[in-house]
Design a protein around this nucleic acid. Structure first.
Lengths: 341, 341
DNA sequence: CACACTTACAAAAACGTTTTCGTAAATCTA
DNA sequence: TAGATTTACGAAAACGTTTTTGTAAGTGTG
């Protein structure tokens, strides 16, 4: 069917090794021969079989985007999409081959990261969505293949991470709420053992303390980052804590903020007139909610792009493992009311 | 590093061919030997190298999800994500390897679908986003590799398509608007030469005619499916057509509907009090807009799932090329006002 | 017990590349 | 111009599997 390297060799009257050298711009070949071979290859519409190439050559340049939990949760929709766009953008610009794999906690047990790379002849991967209880969380450190984790820090000499300064960002977000006159703030939290949860919690505490405000105490609603849990939690909270004068909800993700707004509306309250709500992530959807959500934009697409960039440089030996911290941006929109006191 | 089939063979005291037979549940091997080999493989944590497997064996079972224009437009976000989820869901359930490739009109010229499959040793692909002007649109028909297109019909004995009955769905949506008392309806159209545009247009016309209503005439706003174009188009429309008594906007996609709502709000009108708006697609985001959008849910995730299902069956020779039409569902929410006349 | 047939495996070819090694021919050096 | 070096290429090994072919041993048949 399709032309192989042998066909080209035969047509050009040279050996396959010479064709290979011509195609890959190797030395050890005369300019005249190269051109002749290239012309023949063009005529035969020759395309190297990447599988054979991959098997034969020691070093692959292919990278993978490895998503854990992609099929489980419906909520990080935009997050993962933006991440993909960033990764594919970089790969596209640099002519890299990138493939996406979906894993979960169970498949992590069955197959290690190293095995995944070996099986598919992948140089390295960008890993998103692993929890601290996942097998990968610890095993990544031993891997020969470089990798870049998103928002999770794993030690290991071949492991980089790309993240934001979640503490500073959440501090900023909390400060904004305080600047707008809010004094009693409830916290809608993400998964308790998630790295990002702890970081954001620290940021909130730092801002509250700096302003001489009490920590939220029992005004904390814990969730597993699911919108519905926020709705449920906030609904319960309103029933039991109505007297405490909370005026704002500080949410650890946009989806939690959306769930919070839902609960507030359901309880007959208006946002932001009765309660202010802020989110975190900068999801696409926050532009279209009612009201438009004030949030911190993580610039997720850039995160994907930079993760791919860093991974590529690690593979090529140009950069060593590192922690890359990307800038964030407070997006002020319509979900916070300014309180005059 | 990792154990190869030779290591297993040596450790078990058999030839590599025998190990291969044991691993793949082939006949021509005694139960006793198979068990022994399997145990040794287990001990050595042997995992076959998929690249070598792919190169060696004639028939691959790997499928690809091929997205055209994924990096260009920011708008079909949810659409593509849901499609992915469906495809990966099926692949996951059936232990298939699936990889995602991003192409565009230019790369389609450089490399045919057949070449893409050949290079990556892919059995077949699910193709989304190609336009009727794209090289793939015609060349797909010649390909040896089976494929499934989404929402686009390409003839060819190895080409299936998965779609909805867009005409019936749009008819239904239009009828709903009419049932709610709307008589003067403006149409916000998608890309003129897109298959889906024509189908939806036909549906709208059929419903209008059946009810003895005039076709929209010059109350048609053309776009390329971009939200901003809808906003712009509707803003212009309001200036020139205010007297004509249009009460509703029938949009060919959810993003167009969102753009339309934006234009209406900007012009000081309320939705649905002053104007009703309906969308089409059933994107995730329509649950969160203000007001929540009445739309037709295409069930995009199912589309991905069924496309993967069909492709897999075609590869295995269980199903032949066909046109699969999936059900849709009218989602009535808050963006349409009932007019009493 | 001689013959055909089956079973269970080893050996080797094949997949399409890259890469190593070896070597004539061309070029340089003194 | 003889020797050393470089250039340009062919031949063949290697990558890790699957698949084909061949065959010794075992099993059945009359």
């Amino acid at each position: 069917m399709a032309a192989t390297i042998q066909d080209v060799a035969k047509a050009a009257g040279v050996s396959v090794g010479t064709v290979s050298r011509a195609m890959n711009n190797y030395p050890d070949i005369s300019a005249r021969t190269r051109e002749r071979i290239l012309k023949v290859a063009e005529e035969l519409k020759y395309r190297p079989n990447l599988v054979a190439k991959s098997l034969s050559s020691k070093h692959s340049k292919d990278i993978a985007l490895i998503l854990s939990g992609f099929l489980e949760d419906v909520m990080f929709n935009d997050f993962e999409t933006m991440l993909m766009k960033g990764c594919y953008q970089f790969a596209f610009e640099h002519g890299l081959d990138i493939s996406m794999y979906v894993i979960n906690s169970r498949t992590q047990e069955e197959k290690s990261y190293g095995q995944l790379c070996y099986e598919h002849n992948i140089a390295g991967g960008i890993i998103f969505g692993i929890k601290s209880t996942d097998p990968y969380f610890t095993s990544l450190a031993d891997s020969q293949n470089p990798c870049v984790t998103i928002d999770v820090e794993v030690s290991g000499k071949n492991v980089s991470s790309v993240t934001n300064d979640h503490m500073a960002a959440f501090d900023e977000l909390t400060q904004y709420l305080i600047d707008q006159g809010h004094r009693r703030i409830a916290l809608v939290c993400g998964r308790k053992n998630a790295t990002v949860t702890a970081q954001r919690m620290d940021g909130a505490m730092r801002a509250l303390e700096r302003n001489g405000l009490r920590p939220p105490g029992d005004s904390v609603i814990y969730t597993n980052f699911l919108k519905e849990e926020a709705t449920e939690g906030v609904t319960g909270f309103l029933k039991t804590h109505r007297e405490e004068g909370v005026t704002a909800f500080l949410c650890m993700s946009d989806m939690l903020a959306i769930g919070t707004v839902e609960a507030l509306k359901k309880a007959g309250a208006r946002v932001p007139e009765d309660y202010s709500v802020v989110g975190y992530d900068g999801l696409y959807v926050t532009e279209y909610t009612d009201p438009r959500l004030t949030t911190v934009d993580q610039n997720i697409k850039d995160k994907g792009y930079e993760a791919a960039h860093l991974l590529f440089d690690m593979i090529e030996g140009r950069r060593s493992a590192q922690r890359l911290i990307l800038p964030h941006k407070l997006e002020i929109r319509d979900s916070v009311k300014r309180l005059e006191i």
